[in-house]
């Protein structure tokens, strides 16, 4: 079942599990915190898609750049984001990544190459192209990864970004996480092609579809695309076929809209990477997943405690930091 065409040592294999487990449990904790009203606003959980962010980011270096989406927690954790500062941000606390300015859909850490989650579908794709152009101009072999969904795949700006990257041979990897739906809209009704990767042909770049429930397959495909990009071979469109096991956002159930069958969800759940992958690790004698689980639990426990004890930012801070170059009277107050 597991496709291993790029070699990983034992530590690497365990790291993949640790990251996936961290994302899954992080999201489960987030739901609890939302339900306890400790997290305001809207959160979109990454549950079911962990193998994608994990496989992709494991093939990246710390200085590579990613642009993320509204469903960004998984990307950020996989790129090395600190769960303590993430949860603090989700709670709107001063110790959060964005000092409480951003919340779930905007977490960023430029020092880790995380150019931000994004509230606007598709908006990160051209930003990744810009980071890639800079990498090229500075003669580094950094690459940039743009994450977006099947829904994002239909946004005009994503198509513009694909073309820009192709004509300038930018070191970008476009990762389309095809989870089958954009909120209630099935991709089968929103695209006239079955495999979104075929769209790459129209832009003159390689396109590949991989099993997004198989972390090793994602890692392998990403590694090849990243090598090509680092070597000056230009962009790739990688479609990862996956599924979200939960609603579009935390409170979806309460809205009472139903657009997927229980059978479909159950069918995909049989391929849960957090079942299949640890089972494989155990079977191969690579590690005891339970030990990793305990580590992850302790880390999240500490993260939640850290976020809880962090204070809220002082209200007057709301007007700070808008401009790198400040002028008197800017930004204007409302009164």
């Amino acid at each position: 079942m597991m496709r291993v065409d790029v070699r990983l040592d034992r530590d690497g294999l365990i790291t993949l599990y640790r990251t996936m487990r961290l994302i899954r449990r992080f999201e489960e904790r987030v739901v609890e915190l939302v339900n306890r009203d400790e997290i305001p606003g809207v959160t979109h959980e990454y549950v079911g898609q962990e193998a994608v962010a994990t496989g992709v980011c494991h093939a990246l270096r710390p200085d590579d750049v990613i642009t993320s989406t509204h469903r960004g927690h998984g990307h950020i954790l996989a790129k090395g984001g600190d769960p303590r500062r993430m949860i603090a941000e989700l709670m709107g606390k001063a110790a959060g990544y964005n000092r409480g300015r951003g919340g779930s859909m905007h977490i960023a850490d430029l020092s880790l190459g995380i150019f931000g989650a994004n509230g606007i579908v598709g908006a990160g794709a051209p930003i990744a192209c810009g980071a890639a152009l800079a990498a090229k101009l500075e003669k580094t072999d950094r690459v940039a990864v743009a994450f977006f969904g099947d829904g994002g795949m239909n946004q005009g700006v994503v198509h513009e970004a694909l073309n820009l990257a192709a004509i300038w041979k930018l070191p970008v990897l476009f990762v389309c996480e095809n989870n089958g739906y954009a909120i209630s809209a099935p991709i089968s009704q929103m695209a006239a092609v079955e495999r979104l990767a075929v769209r790459a042909v129209g832009y003159g770049m390689p396109g590949e579809s991989v099993d997004g429930m198989d972390v090793l397959a994602v890692y392998g495909a990403t590694t090849h695309a990243v090598e090509r990009a680092r070597g000056g071979g230009g962009p790739t469109l990688l479609e990862c076929r996956t599924y979200r096991f939960v609603g579009h956002f935390t409170a979806e159930k309460a809205r009472g809209i139903k657009y997927r069958t229980d059978d479909e969800i159950a069918e995909w759940r049989t391929r849960d990477p957090l079942e299949t992958y640890p089972a494989w690790l155990k079977q191969e004698g690579i590690c005891d997943p339970a030990q990793v689980d305990a580590e992850v639990e302790a880390r999240l426990e500490e993260a939640v405690a850290f976020a809880r004890q962090s204070p809220f930012p002082a209200p007057e801070e709301a007007l700070d930091g808008m401009y790198a170059v400040p002028y008197p009277g800017l930004p204007a107050r409302g009164w």
Binding site: G92, G100, R101, A318, L319
Partner: peptide, 20 residues
């Protein structure tokens, strides 16, 4: 005039309340 401040609405509830 009593308006919104000229900043993107911040996420954190106390910040949000301050600018609206």
């Amino acid at each position: 005039r009593l308006t919104r401040a000229d900043v993107p609405v911040p996420f954190s509830p106390p910040l949000e309340a301050y600018v609206l």
